[in-house]
Design a binder for these strands. Sequence first.
DNA 1: GTCTATAGTCCGATAGAC
DNA 2: GTCTATCGGACTATAGAC
Lengths: 172, 172
Amino acid sequence: MLDAAQALVVSDGAARFTLDAVAKRAGVSKGGLMYNFPTKEALLKAMLERLVTHNAAAHAALTERLPDKPGRSLKAYVMNSVRAIDDDDRVSAALLAAVANDPGLLKPASDYFAQRFAKLSRDVPFERAALVYLATEGLWTLELLKMLPFNARQRARIVRHLLKLADEGTDE
Amino acid sequence: MLDAAQALVVSDGAARFTLDAVAKRAGVSKGGLMYNFPTKEALLKAMLERLVTHNAAAHAALTERLPDKPGRSLKAYVMNSVRAIDDDDRVSAALLAAVANDPGLLKPASDYFAQRFAKLSRDVPFERAALVYLATEGLWTLELLKMLPFNARQRARIVRHLLKLADEGTDE
DNA sequence: GTCTATAGTCCGATAGAC
DNA sequence: GTCTATCGGACTATAGAC
């Protein structure tokens, strides 16, 4: 059912994300859907938690494949964020819109964000880690909203710069 | 009427942003509201354009008050973005949610973004300008969504760093 | 557990009087 | 131009059969 819900927001956007549509896409009745998720909010929360889990797993896998030296976690974060936009990202955008009015819904993700930076910046000077982190987040957000004012070449140049900054580790 | 619409999204959020509510807040009937804005989309578009105008004016005013040396436009942009969150920002957040599914609505803002960076980066090395720009945008976005993983001291440190980077101009 | 059917609410937009 | 009144539709959630 969560698969169907995610596929729906990816293809139709957040506006068409209704219980009827999700049930139809999942091949169950609305009653069946609401047996598993008592309210729509419960469904949204489950989708959000799955996104966070996916993201954490992707970052962990990427980190392991990098040499174990200072900044590798931050570097993996950058790499994981600048990939081509995929379905998970599109789900993020739709959910962002859906939950923008319900700050409580974002609480679990908020905690995830706070802990994530703490881990990323452990072996990198604070200011540089924060700069790379914020710039990466800005890049991801603007790209998602199709408001990134860079062409492909400029974007590649920026990504290279971010990775270099993350890689330089503690030698400042 | 636009004032009332903005006040409404600030106080009640995007979910309660209905034509009835806007009309009531503006002290007119729904018919009167829809005489001026034929559809809800027209109303949203007008609000967006006013936001862009406000933002451009604030940046211009801030720029003028800085000494005329390389990087002053970029510096003014950073300063204009890291102020305490105000009503305009809250409107931005609500509109972000409202228009996330309608990419066409964002077109005018998208053009504004593209031109804005071109101006900001005119007298600063590209990579540094892009880094400062993206990090500032990331800071603004995360703060708006209450997902900024920094305390007040760390935030001040980051802002200082961003301003310094913008200020160093072309001496790289 | 999963279904059908429907209750109850709210929205955007229209029609027509004044 | 601005009002009142209302339409048609879509939504979440519930009730109850099987």
